[in-house]
Structure formats: structure tokens, C-alpha cells
Computed example of a mutant assay.
Amino acid sequence: MGLLTCVAVGALGTGGAVIAAPFVLGAVGFTSVGIAAGSYAAGMMSTAAIANGGGVAAGSLVAILQSAGMAGLSTAATAGVAGTGGIVGGILGILI
């Protein structure tokens, strides 16, 4: 029964992470129209800009998250989110 529970919770984690990702991005301020003023994302962007002399570097975490917030997750990002969700779900399944 333990292996079945682990697999089931892992599968739920995989699907749940992919479904939740756009909502979480929006909730922290990475929206489809840009970074929301006063949000956690705005703070990240400010910190990144200060660290890079006034601009946000292409390929940085802020740039990647903003791209995902505006255009949705790429295939590679979806795979990464799904894999991470599955791993976390599998670990929770082991602990249950």
C-alpha cells in the first residue's frame, strides 16, 4: 500500500504543480501585463536591477518568471514544474 500511496500522491503533485503555477505567478506579481506595482515580483525586479547596474539581465530568474507570467510556461518549464511537483508529492507520499 505504501508504494501505491507514494505513486498516487506523486501524480497529484505533478498535476497540481502544473495547474497551480500560473496562479502562483500571478499572485506574487508576475502578470500577463507585466510586473504588478508593489508586489513581491516588483521587489525581486528592483533587487535584480540594483545588482545589475539598473537593468534586469536576460535569462535571470526575474526575466524567466516574468516571461512565464506573460506568455505561460514553456514546454521545458512545464516539465520542470511537473517534475518538481512529482518529487515533492512522492516524498509526501512516503511520509504519509
Rank of each mutant, 00 (worst) to 15 (best):
I19S: 11
I19P: 01
A20H: 03
A21T: 08
P22N: 03
V24G: 01
V24S: 05
L25I: 09
L25G: 07
G26Q: 11
G26K: 14
G26N: 13
A27F: 15
G29K: 03
F30Y: 14
F30I: 01
F30Q: 01
F30H: 01
T31Q: 03
S32V: 10
S32N: 09
S32I: 00
V33I: 11
G34A: 04
I35Y: 01
A36L: 05
A37P: 15
A37C: 00
G38E: 10
G38R: 11
G38A: 05
Y40N: 04
A41Y: 05
A41E: 02
G43L: 03
G43N: 12
M44C: 08
M45P: 00
T47N: 05
T47I: 05
T47S: 12
T47H: 02
A48W: 00
A49H: 07
A51R: 07
A51S: 11
G53K: 08
G54M: 13
G54L: 15
G55E: 15
G55R: 15
A58K: 15
G59D: 01
S60Y: 13
S60P: 11
L61V: 13
L61A: 13
V62D: 01
V62A: 06
L65F: 12
L65E: 02
Q66E: 14
Q66T: 12
S67W: 02
S67H: 15
S67F: 05
A68I: 04
A68H: 04
G69N: 03
A71M: 10
A71R: 13
A71G: 04
G72E: 07
G72S: 06
L73N: 10
T75H: 08
T75L: 15
T75W: 14
A76G: 09
A77R: 09
A77N: 04
A77L: 10
A77I: 03
T78M: 12
A82H: 08
A82P: 10
G83F: 07
G83V: 11
G83K: 08
T84S: 13
T84K: 11
T84E: 00
T84I: 14
G85T: 09
G86W: 09
I87N: 03
I87A: 15
I87W: 05
G89S: 12
G89H: 10
G89M: 12
